[in-house]
Design a protein around this nucleic acid. Sequence first.
DNA 1: CCCTTTAAGCTTTTT
DNA 2: GCTTAAAGGG
Length: 624
Amino acid sequence: MKIIPPEKWLPCDGIVLEEKAECAVRSNSHVLVIAGPGAGKTELLAQKAAYLLQTNRCMDPQKILAISFKTDAAQNLKERVEKRCGTEAKYRFVSMTFDAFAKNLLDHFLFALPAELRPQSDYLVNDDIVIDAAFTKVGYRNPAGLSPSRLKNFYDSALAAVTLPIATDGLAENVWSLLLKGFDDCKSTLTFKMITMLAKYMIETNLPIKRALQLTYSYIFLDEFQDTTGMQYAFVKQCFLGSDSKITAVGDNKQRIMVWAGALKGIFLAFNNEFKPEPVRLVMNHRSAPRLVALQKEMYVSLKEKATEVNTSSKWNPTDGDIALVIADNETIEAQAIVEDIMCKIAEGIEPYDICILCKQLPPNYAPVIISELANHEVRARIENEYQDLIKEPVVDLLLKVMLCSLNRKRPHDWELIEDSLIDIWGIGTTQGDEAYDQMQDRLFAKADELKKQMTETPDRANWHNILADLMRFMDISGIKAKFPAYRQGVYLEELFTKFENLFWTELDTASDNWQLAIENFCGLHSIPIMTIHKSKGLEYSAVYFIGLEDSAFWNFRHQPEEDRCAFFVALSRAKKSITFTYCKRRTNFQAPFQRHNEINELFDLLQRPGMAEVKEVTELPVV
DNA sequence: CCCTTTAAGCTTTTT
DNA sequence: GCTTAAAGGG
């Protein structure tokens, strides 16, 4: 690849970076980028990767390591970088999750661990039954009578509290020993935290591996830095603190909504003290319209954030952006008001997938009335949870792609992906040459033809089951299990398969044998997504409806006011053009129907400040 | 069988 | 806090 001198390098694809962002891209020290919603954090990382690779500041063959929390975030970043700087990124930009990074290290250097800390190489991950059995075996009988979920929590934190090497002779230490080596009929089993602990210990005790790691990765990207847990941070420090590798951490303390799950509150401060990064604050909000940004800025005070400048994109007029607070008598009227508004948006040409309905928690308690009211207007809406859990699974993705490609051959990108996967799953090595490859292609094309024929007939339930089972057999279930270790465990793959079969069947059923449409519907291309605030993090929608700005939805506000304010901020900042909050005086389908907003009154006050939200009281018309 | 009481979970991800 | 589901009581 041609090396571009740094002073001649320009951001790829005609992207214009704000001045501070370009500083962060070109910085050669550790950097802490604090950037609000819509500032273009992913783009900044993608451009920085392009800069480092294209100018050879990340010297060939050294690599960039990007660490995210979720697989889809890691995937997105990888794709963005490949789009920005092409094939070079395939080999020298490594994007993965924290857990994948730890597990790869552990698996790769398993024999660097002392024998007493070394698990079997085919260890299970996070197997609840084995972990419970291990605690039981060492004599733990749940004396406090913890509920199942609390018990699981206790197991996890007890195991995470052990220090390596295992020195003392306590409960958790004994369980560690059992889990490491396996016991009775159980294989070695590790929790995700144990994997990180072992990986960290390995780096701590093996200078050559540590050096090799530091030499391999000269730049480290940490995405969503505000969500980093203490253990993850300790691991990163163990790997890279004091080395020449430069860390670029990107995050937003105003969107810190994972503290309850272990995110370290003082992470920015700790990073500042220990790595002395160059601080960068981005001031652009490319996402939201000016009036929405004004509301976001009003939140800054309650989020204990300095009222820094935020600039909006020039694509907006200064008066753009709609904020509404709907005060409804009951959930039927609430639904009618929302649906009326949504129908206007759709009439304006906004696609359903660009509209989002958010709840603080438990969408099933709030969504049904709205879903049926939307259905009356022929608009689909669905709670995303189980769909997303399925869609993110690589095997489901593969199944959908095979179906799509069978329907329509003109999908070169998907074909390539299927072929690559099959080469992997069927174990076709490069040594076998072109013949094996051609054979694979022939079989795939034959299968695609067969599938296409099957998809022209109207399937019934049993029929669909057979088609799917056939397809799984074709791809080779044991091969899939070999490629994806997660599917090897217990009945995971079988359950996944059943869930997919059932959910997809409802789509096939309603799409009346239009397979293409069924697939699109399954992927959420034609429906309004309904989800929790937490699930919406990182996403953006033209119009957002936040349902239930009520005390009962924010039941934990007293105990975690900061985090709930952040949650409100996250919900608010998903919207590009309009945001609507609803407050329902009476939810007649609830056991305690009367809703208040005493506890979260500060959020109401904010919306009711002059010039902020349009307050719409909707009441039942008296029946004449 | 119906009514009352109690317990559990609620916001997450990761191979 | 509040909902839901399961268990308990008559």
